[in-house]
Design a protein around this nucleic acid. Structure first.
Lengths: 144, 144
DNA sequence: TACTTTAATCAGTGTCTCTGACTATCGTCA
DNA sequence: TGACGATAGTCAGAGACACTGATTAAAGTA
């Protein structure tokens, strides 16, 4: 298995590694009940709350799926639904204190992993990688 | 949303784009019944067939899950199970003609997407990206 | 031969995601 | 202003995927 993998697969390997690391760190800090799907949604919730439809679009799932995940997150105490003052149909999904306290834990682990990577490939390559991926995002991210 | 994303998320965006493109191409060519999980398993099947346990390990799922996916692939006509001459307990999962015909379709789309990326970021950056990701793989791929 | 390991399957469960149908509200335009 | 299409969200039902735990059958080993 020392063959030349495609860039697609090569992108996935470190991504998956990062995800696993952050999840392990969260679990260790007492946030072991959050799933991958829930985390993807959590990341998209803005400081003043975000509508379900916006969340669904950003996470690339249906409204139903997003609603299902928010139900779970609400039950676990990570988010709350409040009426949207600007639109009677809509409700805003907002992070609770418990969720807000978890953010630094995740951020710290992300920073730690990025440092390990930088140590391995060097500062210059790391900056280049970030730059290149940002350029690639221009043509691959439909929701940027 | 023009903020600086973490490298982890930046890796995921183009990966996801590649995956979507390949799946769309496969669907267009008449392979629309293959799912992501099934494809991950299919990729790991060697030319002479591969045991279920090996497949499960490589794809990082349990034997049960791998067996479930192979059941589906068998029903759809992409793989067949044959006895392993070397071990009476084991059976080899082998690709059928139908699956083998699909491989070039996927390869072509991968090449096409990589070309588009190269056109956007340039030949030099593309080569650097491949190099950097390969280096990163050394510390992030437990199954290399 | 008895014991342990390995390959695969069976049974049961929980999570995630989808399609389709529905209610309530909003915005617009005649 | 009142009718109508669009939008926000929910309910109902289904399928895909992944897990743990237990079981059967065959190898390998002492």
């Amino acid at each position: 298995m020392a063959e030349e993998l495609t860039v697609g697969v090569l992108l996935f390997i470190p991504y998956r590694a990062m995800e696993n690391r952050v999840f392990a760190a969260m679990a260790e800090a007492g946030y072991g009940d959050i799933t991958v799907a829930q985390a993807r949604l959590l990341q998209r919730i803005g400081p003043d709350g975000t509508r379900l439809t916006v969340l669904a679009e950003a996470a690339q799932v249906t409204k139903q799926t997003a609603g299902f995940l928010v139900d779970q997150l609400e039950r676990a105490g990570y988010v709350e639904r409040v009426p949207d003052p600007a639109d009677g149909r809509a409700r805003l999904v907002r992070l609770t204190g418990r969720a807000l306290e978890g953010i630094p834990v995740a951020d710290r682990e992300v920073a730690k992993v990025e440092q390990e990577w930088e140590r391995h490939i060097g500062k210059r390559r790391m900056a280049q990688l970030r730059e290149t991926l940002t350029m690639l995002r221009e043509i691959t991210d439909p929701y940027q």
